[in-house]
Nucleic acid binder design. Structure first.
Length: 804
DNA sequence: AGCACGCCGACT
DNA sequence: GTCGGCGTGCTC
């Protein structure tokens, strides 16, 4: 077994296969499947993953592995297989699949540089080159290019005076801090203490300390607790009484926080009924998918916690997915309170190093539970006992870059391997999941009542067209405004929700109707107030805000669209004494600011919490008795077959923030389309009727869950090219599918141009097409290289969530 | 993805 | 005649 099959870090069609390498003798026992290695590849050196060891290769002249990057494999057998599964099901490259399963810190960086060849002295080089090598023995290739030295360097390289070196940089940096620990046994320590001069009080203190706690201690900590200086330790180290060493520490994002340990709460009869089947599945080690459908505030989390408790008792591990976890610090707290140090947390708010450290805790089996966003589904546990996906309907569980996987599918795949249950929890399940539960593919568990038997909040829908007709041109209806004032008087709290998406502020000329568009993308520019700039959200193009219309020179430029900032201003004008906390991308950009704002609100430092999407979830504060949705229909008008579903879910979620505890809650939903069933039924919080109604629509329009979808998007700089290629693709696919399949397109994408590239797409609706996957692969094969560098890009998304 | 190899146009 | 454009094909 001295040959390794390696998947190399080159995401391209032609390299999407294993390459064989010889394992040098001295590495024979280090290199195993799942190890990252550095291998020579053509003239360069790159990173790769060993997938398999073997004795023979069909290749005769094998090159050798340069070195391993890991001492223990980063991918175990299960994850290697999962990677293959992922590749197959997302039509992406193997290397991308492996990389997505690991923390970003493990992805290699490459550096190309020039070094003085052995035996060459600087003076042999021509003057200007010698200059560059005088101080350092190496020169970064990019710098050389910038200085225009490439030609010269090539000559010198040919003459053998310099070498071009390719370096793989592991960006993993383990954090190390100086630690001090005794170098001798306690008896000797006592002896040493007696020998110290009586003035050496610092050294005495250190020895006394170690007599009580002989384990290594961080130097900085030791100095400050004993109130001594570095000198004492240095002299002790000199006498070899203590040792100072850099020891690895974990970056712990929750280090500053204290979590009070809490025990299980008593379950209600309903919760009890719901948890029994889950516990039984854990007990029998049977794979089963549960859909835990419980209204907001019905106590789903406690069911998760107690199921995990049982899994831990059996010596197994648990994965809990929550949507973008930094958004729900309350959730993390509950897990940490219950399971303490056994919990690792993974979310996008962590730095690469912190993520890597959390990942390593899992790999080293130091934790048993991971709570995290989408990518936590790949946590390298080896004895999984349960996977929980909270807010199952959330679209953020679908990754929108390659590999375009859905965490739910990965969860089920992994749970099958470990014969363990998956619990999907939601107050507003996705239609797909609920339909599966109806069909019996998932087991439905319902929690129809709130835990404390608190009624669901009373919801009032306000027709904003009516408000306009009566002359109210503000963004607050009379009703909502009165209620807000009322809450402030009663010292209760209000949550105001503004869905900005699809309605971002743009600038329009009131005389000629000119709207500023991005010159590279067919999309309107968004007005950013903080730097007075117009910005394109797709390519990053920025421009100044015009003072006169570029079309007609009119000065009547108007800002459209309502942002949270504007709402805040208007609110303060109307109720100057209101204390408002605003939460949006601008105010929560900094790390930890999200949590800070929420804590401030919880402590009653504000009357009103005003925010976007991010406040729709997980807020659970007793004093919130009013929720206002300023405009319910902004997302209803998006060109997306899920827009009704999303609207219903969002409105229901937001409404659920009110009256979760003793005080009853009220909700006011402002809308321009009160008659739409998703608004109306969110008002009565009637998921079942919404489900019926929406299923009807989906059936009529042939959308999921009745049909599967696949989306092919083609982009190129030339419109003609895009259209003709997409046409060919559509024809090809149609020819390979049965008559039941529907191929829509080619049509221009909802955003027809991004970054000067035209985009066309073709949507495939089907029920069962075993040939589809092969057909799509053929397309990718053909076009990805035919026009490879020429700029034709083709992306395939199986089960897309965003049809843009 | 990089990079080398190789085959055609505009220059000393 | 040579420098350099980027089209083509390979990397164990």
């Amino acid at each position: 077994m001295n040959i390794a099959s390696v998947i190399v870090d080159v995401p391209a069609k032609q390299t999407d296969k294993t390459f064989d390498y010889k394992i040098p003798d001295h590495l024979l026992d280090v290199i195993k499947p799942g190890t990252r290695v550095i291998v020579p590849f053509g003239p360069r050196k790159i990173q790769g993953f060993v997938t398999e060891l073997k004795d023979q290769s069909s290749f005769s002249k094998l090159r050798s592995i340069v070195e391993p990057l890991d001492l223990t494999p980063v991918l175990n057998e299960e994850l290697l297989q999962l990677g293959e599964w992922l590749t197959e099901h997302t039509l992406s490259y193997k290397i991308s699949s492996y990389q997505v399963m690991l923390p970003a810190a493990l992805k290699a960086k490459y550096e190309k540089k020039i070094m003085l060849a052995k035996g060459t002295v600087v003076s042999e080089l021509p003057g200007n080159l010698a200059e560059s090598f005088k101080e350092k023995s190496e020169l970064k290739w990019d710098d050389a290019v910038a200085k225009g030295l490439v030609q010269q360097l090539q000559k010198e390289a040919a003459a053998g005076r310099i070498d071009v070196v390719y370096q793989v940089k592991d960006r993993v940096r383990k954090k190390r801090l100086k630690h001090v620990y005794p170098a001798i046994v306690p008896e000797e320590l006592k002896e040493a203490r007696n020998k110290l001069s009586s003035q050496a009080s610092g050294q005495q203190a250190v020895i006394d300390f170690f007599l009580e706690h002989p384990e290594p201690v961080e130097q900085r900590l030791l100095l400050s607790t004993l109130g001594i200086s570095q000198a004492s330790i240095t002299s002790l180290a000199k006498k070899e009484i203590v040792k100072v060493e850099e020891l690895e520490v974990y970056r712990d994002p929750y280090a500053e926080r204290k979590f009070e340990r809490k025990t299980a709460l008593e379950l209600t009869a309903e919760q009890e009924n719901a948890i029994i089947p889950i516990l039984s599945s854990i007990e029998k080690e049977l794979h089963e998918v549960f859909l835990l459908y419980g209204v907001t505030g019905s106590g789903k989390t406690e069911i998760y916690l107690q199921s995990i408790q049982e899994v831990l008792r059996k010596g197994k591990e648990a994965i809990v997915l929550v949507p973008e976890i930094s958004l729900t610090p309350q959730m993390v707290t509950r897990f940490k309170e219950r399971f303490g140090d056994l919990v690792a947390v993974m979310h996008s708010g962590l730095s690469a190093g912190e993520k890597y450290d959390e990942w390593r805790k899992i790999q080293r089996k130091e934790v048993k539970v991971v709570v995290g966003a989408r990518s936590a589904i790949f946590a390298p546990f080896e004895n999984l006992g349960i996977i929980i996906i909270d807010e199952e309907h959330e679209t953020s569980y679908k990754q929108e870059e390659n590999p375009r996987y859905h965490a739910r599918d990965v969860a089920i795949q992994r749970a099958k391997t470990y014969a363990c249950p998956v619990v999907l929890g939601s107050a507003t399940p996705s239609l797909e999941s609920f339909a599966r539960a109806q069909k019996g593919r998932y087991t439905l568990l319902s929690l129809p009542k709130r835990m404390n038997n608190q009624a669901l909040p009373a919801v009032e829908i306000v027709d904003m067209r009516e408000e306009l007709r009566t002359g109210n041109r503000s963004m607050f209806s009379v009703k909502l405004f009165e209620k807000i004032k009322d809450r402030i008087e009663r010292k209760e709290q209000t949550v105001l929700f503004l869905n900005k998406r699809g309605h971002s502020s743009f600038v329009m000329c009131r005389d000629c109707g000119y709207v500023m568009n991005c010159p590279h993308c067919d999309i309107t520019l968004t007005y950013h107030r903080y730097n007075e700039q117009m910005k394109c959200h797709y390519c990053g193009y920025e421009d100044r805000v015009p003072t006169i219309c570029p079309e007609c020179n009119s000065e009547h430029i108007r800002y459209f669209g309502t942002g949270t900032q504007k709402v805040e201003e208007e609110l303060l004008k109307l109720i100057p004494e209101a204390r408002i906390i605003r939460m949006d991308v601008d105010t929560t950009g900094r790390k930890g600011s999200h949590e800070k704002l929420l804590t401030a609100f919880q402590e009653g430092q504000a009357d009103i919490l005003l925010g976007t999407q991010m406040i729709a979830k997980g807020l659970d504060f007793p004093n919130i008795t009013l929720v206002g949705v300023l405009s319910a229909d902004t997302m209803l008008n998006l060109p997306d077959f899920r827009s009704s579903e999303k609207t219903f879910q969002l409105l229901t979620q937001v409404s659920g923030r009110a009256g979760r505890h003793k005080l009853p809650g009220e909700v006011v939903i402002q809308t321009y389309t009160p008659e739409h069933y998703s608004v109306e039924l969110a008002g009565t919080q009637d998921y079942d009727r919404f489900y019926q109604q929406e299923m009807l629509m989906r059936k009529v329009h042939q959308y999921p869950p009745f049909y599967y979808l696949s989306l092919v998007t083609v982009s190129h700089e030339e419109l003609m090219k895009v259209v003709s290629v997409t046409e060919k693709i559509a024809k090809f696919i149609t020819s390979r599918l049965s008559k039941d399949a529907v191929v829509l397109g080619p049509v221009a994408s909802p955003i027809p141009r991004i970054n000067d590239r035209y985009r066309y797409q073709c949507l495939i609706k089907y029920k069962k097409e075993p040939e589809l996957s092969t057909a799509l692969k053929t397309i990718l094969d053909q076009y990805q290289q035919e026009m490879g560098s020429g700029g034709l890009q083709i992306s395939v998304d199986l089960n897309p969530y965003i049809l843009m």
